[in-house]
Design a protein around this nucleic acid. Structure first.
Lengths: 142, 142
DNA sequence: TTAGAAATATTCTAGCTATAATTATTATGG
DNA sequence: CCATAATAATTATAGCTAGAATATTTCTAA
């Protein structure tokens, strides 16, 4: 059972729209929860991805954005006293991002809020694993 | 085989990152192809979604953005003579967006470019259908 | 019918984002 | 060792985006 090239192309375009749609839903979800904590969506996303000390570039990778954008967002979080830019232990070019006590506490509250009514909650754990597997294929580095 | 709530929450956050990552890959792909045609990524996305005459709101829905943003993007496309805002046949509040001959031709060229090296091409048609099914569940309107 | 609610599009504003250029530092090849 | 390339972060800029407020038109219920 083969698929005609044109139908295949149309299906791929629809898939692009679906991926974009879900990404927007997630961003909206983050935004709504973020405002309750005095954060913007971008700030909350950065906080969510701060699973531990990391460099600016690593954070940008995790946020799927350019490093210049990470600079912008971390500037805001640093002004709020949630994150600190420290010297990197081994590379003087890099910065070592670490959460302050307040930042860490706020992150916990954020994560707790984000688990409520997540757009992904409509999927069973099994379906989520299936989705994860498919997405990892597309995001894999060659 | 049950999943502990904490592990489940972590998996969901990673899934958010993956969805965001793929959405960015697609946007990057569109951006690269768009500049070859003198378009920005947003303009190309609007063109891609213009499958036929539609209102501003319908376009915004398809682009997963706010109507105010659609106004911004259509302004640009209209200035380039690719789209026209006509009177809606039945609703005087709404605009009827239609592609001009040039807009339609450019759209064809764009779609042709977009099918090359799509980030989704690493998935088989079967996997793409599976992905589509999962995404549709999450984007379904209640 | 008519007053009020809802929908469509736009404007304005604040904030997000990518790109290119710049500085400082590290890594690499001759 | 030194010159060159590569990497990390930042700055400046242009363009994208959401949200609130507004004007117009349509829908709805009393």
């Amino acid at each position: 059972m083969t698929t005609p090239p044109e139908a295949q192309a149309i299906a791929e375009r629809e898939l692009c729209g679906l991926v974009n749609g879900l990404a927007h839903r997630i961003a909206d979800h983050v935004r709504r929860r973020a405002v309750a904590l005095g954060l913007t969506a971008a700030q909350a996303t950065a906080l969510r991805e701060m699973t531990g000390p990391m460099t600016m570039r690593e954070l940008a990778e995790r946020m799927s954005c350019e490093p210049s954008n990470a600079t912008f967002v971390i500037d805001k979080l640093e002004k709020q006293g949630l994150v600190e830019r420290r010297a990197h232990p081994t590379d003087r070019r890099a910065k070592h991002l670490v959460l302050t006590a307040e930042g860490s506490a706020l992150r916990e509250r954020l994560l707790e809020l984000l688990t409520r009514d997540s757009p992904l909650a409509v999927l069973t754990p099994e379906q989520q694993r299936a989705l994860q597997g498919l997405l990892e294929k597309t995001v894999a580095r060659p």
